[in-house]
Design a protein around this nucleic acid. Structure first.
Lengths: 153, 153
DNA sequence: CACATATGTTGTGCACTAAAACAATTTATG
DNA sequence: CATAAATTGTTTTAGTGCACAACATATGTG
């Protein structure tokens, strides 16, 4: 098969032909997102925070009093998925559910005092991790990416 | 909290503050990839092909005779995950496992004649679907995206 | 009140991911 | 050659995430 089939001395392998995948944005997005996901996990898994949990934390911190469904809609998640996420964040004492005064069906979500301190530590981790990946880019490319990717919302 | 709290007549809602998420590539990548994933599913789910299966099909078609682990490595998948995928594609009569002549542990993967015909139909579906999303971009932006995203591999 | 809608929740199913263990086989090492 | 180590495909298991339906509670509309 290879130019040096079963040659154990060299670690070379036949280059794989990716065909149309090389020009498909969907595939490239998946690969890039996997890189970011793994990087995030490596940086924050010891804190028990996944990318999904982080998104909820940010939205609740920036929008105190939001209901669960509002947060779900903002992050393009399913309402039912919020139950477990909020449960987890509550057990970590990062956010809390308060009964809404206007609608007894819903909860208003707020950061706890500890959650706010935790958030500062977390945001530093996350920023450092992303900065590390941005080193792969040239100046301005990050902003270009952000602007273009926004069009797919 | 809203300017018109619980006003069911109007569909207006308070704008959500996304905080740091607005400048985080990881989050934007996830959102964009979700759009592509949903678009792909809408276009190809009736054919029983998911983005993951499609990737395997392309790699096998472009690299006949590759082993399962080679395909897994090329697509950054786990070896164990390939078992189910290849099983499924074999039942769909799209690819086939042939015993490798050089290594009796491994299989060589090949497209079936029907698989090649199916691939042509499939590639048209996928291309049309991606073209639809590319309409959201200006000329050249797609190529720019592909080039930049490649840096995160 | 009757009816439709919204919210949180539970459960289910499906798909993807990863790790560990295993048999068969191949390769490396002495 | 003989033994140890590594590889391949597979199974199993577990964990995760996601989507959908159904439900009870609560709110809104007529």
């Amino acid at each position: 098969m290879g130019s040096a089939a079963n040659n154990l001395v060299s670690t070379e392998e036949d280059p794989v032909n990716y065909g149309v995948l090389d020009h498909m944005l969907g595939y490239k997005l998946r690969r890039a997102q996997l890189t970011f996901f793994n990087s995030f996990s490596a940086a924050c898994s010891d804190l028990g925070v996944s990318p999904g949990l982080f998104g909820v934390l940010v939205v609740v911190k920036e929008n105190p009093g939001l209901t669960q469904t509002a947060v779900a809609k903002a992050l393009a998640n399913d309402r039912s998925a919020m139950v477990g996420v909020v449960d987890k964040l509550e057990k970590m004492d990062l956010i809390e559910r308060r009964p809404s005064k206007k609608d007894r069906r819903s909860y208003a979500l707020f950061m706890t005092p500890y959650g706010l301190k935790f958030y500062e530590k977390l945001i530093k981790r996350v920023s450092d991790q992303e900065e590390e990946l941005y080193k792969l880019l040239k100046p301005g490319e990050k902003e270009m990416l952000l602007a273009i990717l926004d069009k797919f919302d």
